[in-house]
Amino acid sequence: MRATTGEKVFGVFNITFLFGLSLAALYPLIFVLFASFSDPGQLVQTRGLLLFPKGFTFDAYRMVFMNPSIGTAYLNTLFYVIAGTALNIFLSSMAAYGLSRRDVLWKNPIMFMITFTMFFEGGLIPTFLLINELGLLDTRMAIIIPTAISAFNLIIMRTAFQAVPVELEESARLDGASDFRICWSVVFPLSMPVIAVMLLFYGVSHWNSWFSAMIYLQDRALFPLQLILREILIVNDTSSMMTDISSGDQMPIGETIKYATIIVATLPILCAYPFLQKYFVKGVMIGAVKG
């Protein structure tokens, strides 16, 4: 089929538009990246877009890495991400396995009980009071336990587990495998794409989470990175980081510290993302379109 003139014009317009859109999606981060390497003095004089760093210095990064509260927060975030995601995957996959089996009498009532929480919830205050009642306030557990399972992710996992052929499960059972064994050695390895998606979804949500830390934590030693980042970027407080600099330099250096902190806090996700990307489209499809 030959394209008509109108379709050709549209094709060119479409490609141009999508190119512009990609640029718009990418440029803010590129700007931040360039600005973080720039010389603070030159940066404040720059107006408009950056097409490359103005000058080149690692000063801002040195400041960020030497800052003790960012270091602590980074380690805290790593803990929340690793421990939290491990708990998420462990509990969700066990539950998803159970809910994906045939011939389990209470499966549908349990499924209903879980799904219902997606549409109706007790809300912020009763949840906060519960966490308080359980004595979890101001502990690391307050960040990990209340989000131990996401109903949405659990349903995605269950749908993926249902796709594992029954024959494999039955032959494993004939070999004397228990449900634990089947879950771990048959279903789990065959569902790696969905596990990868879950790692990404759960992991990113822990990495980016700040609100529960803000309401549940008081002790700064437990703060995750995002909460410190909020102080620096939004409450606008870089003063604690620059105590050792002469007052004249403070203003401009503060700006580049902001940019460097953004990069340090975002880079791990941006690095992991391309590797997991081929899986998550699949994951979203399982969760959304099937059925």
Binding site: A95, W106, E121, D179
Partner: peptide, 30 residues
């Protein structure tokens, strides 16, 4: 059903406990 699916219910129990405590608990607290 319970005799046959004991292990399955064991695997489901943490999730059921979690949703009861952290999702239905706040509903009670409402």
């Amino acid at each position: 059903d319970f005799a046959k699916n004991k292990l399955i219910y064991l695997m489901l129990s943490p999730a059921v406990a979690y949703f009861l405590l952290f999702h239905y608990g706040p509903m009670y607290g409402m």
